[in-house]
Every structure is written in structure tokens, then in C-alpha cells.
């Protein structure tokens, strides 16, 4: 497994798509996320007027488009390996399909999350010149929120991994992954339009079942400063559930698939 991860890292370093996956969200983060973001209608309630507030608003507003972009790029990264048949080397070298798949999942977890967190971090750094830093009391909030965001983001990226394994083709994987993520986001927007939103926010105190099981909505939900243990655990369970379904489905396809 360690050889496979080293190999993945070597391949990523030499892949333009990987660098674009990192650079594009970071560029957006730097350009778009300024202090004026706090002036807009916030998507999350109880936003403090400091860097934590910037983190909350930019994460609520930016993560979903970033997920669509990084999800499509991740599908491209993995899809290329099937289209170019370089994945065949790993199989014919005697690596198990489980190990190969796990290494892809690890990369699929790290790359999009790294891109998204870097973009948010750059936005926060830019704003740190004009907004106060949060107090040290906010550290647990950041740790908890980032951990949950990593999981929820990955639950959506796992859809892209599933489609890559299903199609084993770059173009189809990118198209279907991006379209599916887009539909999921539209679906969430549609649900929010019918929900009782907290005035001035894109957040509801009474989310229905569909929203409570929707990772894209939960990404915003977990950004709130005050989150009960039950809500936190529910969000984790939903993220793990989605990831299990799609990654499990992807593995079932990959372990018996015939490679070109």
C-alpha cells in the first residue's frame, strides 16, 4: 500500500490536472473572498465579525462550487488512469484490487479537501489584514468544523469515485460526476426554497428529512457555531453513510471489472 501511495504522489506531482485542482479553488478563494463578504446576507446564522465569520460565510458559499470543480477534476485524475490504462501496471504488478482502490480513495479524500481548505485558508489570510482574528476559544470550533467538512466533502467526492469505477473513462466520468453534483446542489436549493429559512440566511431551523440526509446541506449546517452533539453525530453518520454506499458500490464494480 505504501508503494501505491508513493506512486500516486509521484504521478500527481507530474500531473497538470492535480495542480489545476489546487490552483483554481485557491485563485477563487483569493480573488472572491474579501472582508465585504460579511456584508452580504449570511448563509449561516450567528456570524461573528472576524476571521471566523469569513470562514463561515466563505465555506457556506464556496464549498459547493469548489466541490463540483474538484469533484470533476478528481474524476479526471482517476479517469485518465483508466483511459491511459496505466492502472493496468498496478494490477499486473501484483497489487490487490482492494489496495489499489483504497489508495484511490485516500487520494480522493486528500486532494479535493486540500484544495478546498487551501482556498478557504487563503480567503481568511487575505481578510486577516482588515478583520480581527478570532479568539483562542474558537479553536475547538475550527477543529470540529474542519473535521466534519472533510467528511462531508468526501461523502460527495465518493460519488465521483463511484462514477470513475463505473465508466472507467475520463470523459464520461467527468461529465456524469459534475452533472450529478450539480443536480444534488440544485436539489438542495429546491428544498431550501420550500423550507422556513431563518430570515436573512440560507439556513433553516426546521430542516426536513431530505435536507437532514443531504451532505451538501449539512456542509452549511455544521458551520454554525452552536451544534448539538446529536446534530454533529447525525451529520457524521450521514457523511459516513453516503461514503459507504458510493465507495462500497465503486469497490464492488472495481473488484470484478475487466480492464481494457
Amino acid at each position: 500500500m505504501s508503494n501505491l501511495l508513493k506512486y500516486e504522489w509521484y504521478e500527481l506531482r507530474h500531473n497538470l490536472i492535480f495542480w489545476l485542482t489546487l490552483i483554481i479553488p485557491c485563485a477563487f478563494g483569493l480573488i472572491m473572498f474579501g472582508p465585504d463578504y460579511l456584508g452580504y446576507d449570511p448563509m449561516v446564522p450567528d456570524i461573528p465579525h472576524n476571521i471566523q465569520g469569513i470562514f463561515m460565510t466563505t465555506a457556506a458559499d464556496g464549498i459547493l462550487p469548489f466541490l463540483i470543480i474538484t469533484g470533476a477534476f478528481t474524476a479526471m485524475l482517476f479517469g485518465q488512469q483508466f483511459s491511459n490504462r496505466v492502472i493496468d501496471h498496478e494490477i499486473s504488478a501484483g497489487h490487490s484490487r482492494a489496495a489499489i482502490y483504497t489508495s484511490r480513495c485516500i487520494v480522493g479524500f486528500i486532494v479535493p479537501n486540500l484544495a478546498i481548505l487551501l482556498a478557504l485558508l487563503l480567503g481568511c489570510i487575505r481578510c486577516s489584514f482588515s478583520l480581527p482574528l478570532p479568539s483562542t476559544q474558537s479553536i475547538p470550533y475550527f477543529i470540529r468544523t474542519i473535521a466534519m467538512l472533510l467528511l462531508l466533502n468526501f461523502s460527495l467526492i465518493s460519488i465521483c469515485i463511484f462514477f470513475v469505477m463505473l465508466f472507467r473513462d475520463t470523459a464520461k466520468s467527468i461529465a456524469v460526476s459534475a452533472l450529478f453534483l450539480l443536480i444534488i446542489c440544485w436539489f438542495m436549493a429546491g428544498l431550501l426554497q420550500t423550507a422556513n429559512l431563518v430570515p436573512g440566511t440560507a439556513y433553516t431551523n426546521t430542516p426536513g428529512v431530505a435536507l437532514l440526509f443531504h451532505p451538501a446541506y449539512l456542509i452549511r449546517h455544521v458551520l454554525r457555531p452552536y451544534l448539538t452533539l446529536r446534530e454533529g453525530l447525525a451529520a457524521i453518520a450521514v457523511a459516513v453513510g453516503w461514503a459507504t454506499v458510493f465507495l462500497g458500490g465503486g469497490y464492488c464494480v472495481f473488484r470484478r471489472c475487466e480492464l481494457k
Binding site: L4, N84, H89
Partner: peptide, 20 residues
């Protein structure tokens, strides 16, 4: 099956790493 964006040496280096 080759990485077209890499050189011959880089392709072999990737293979060397993968094979340990």
C-alpha cells in the same frame, strides 16, 4: 500504457516506485 506527459525516465521512475 504510458504517462504521456512524463519523460521516459519519469515513466520508469513511477513504475519503480510502484513496484517498490
Amino acid at each position: 500504457a504510458l504517462y504521456k506527459n512524463m519523460t521516459a525516465q519519469q515513466n520508469l521512475e513511477a513504475q519503480r516506485i510502484q513496484r517498490g
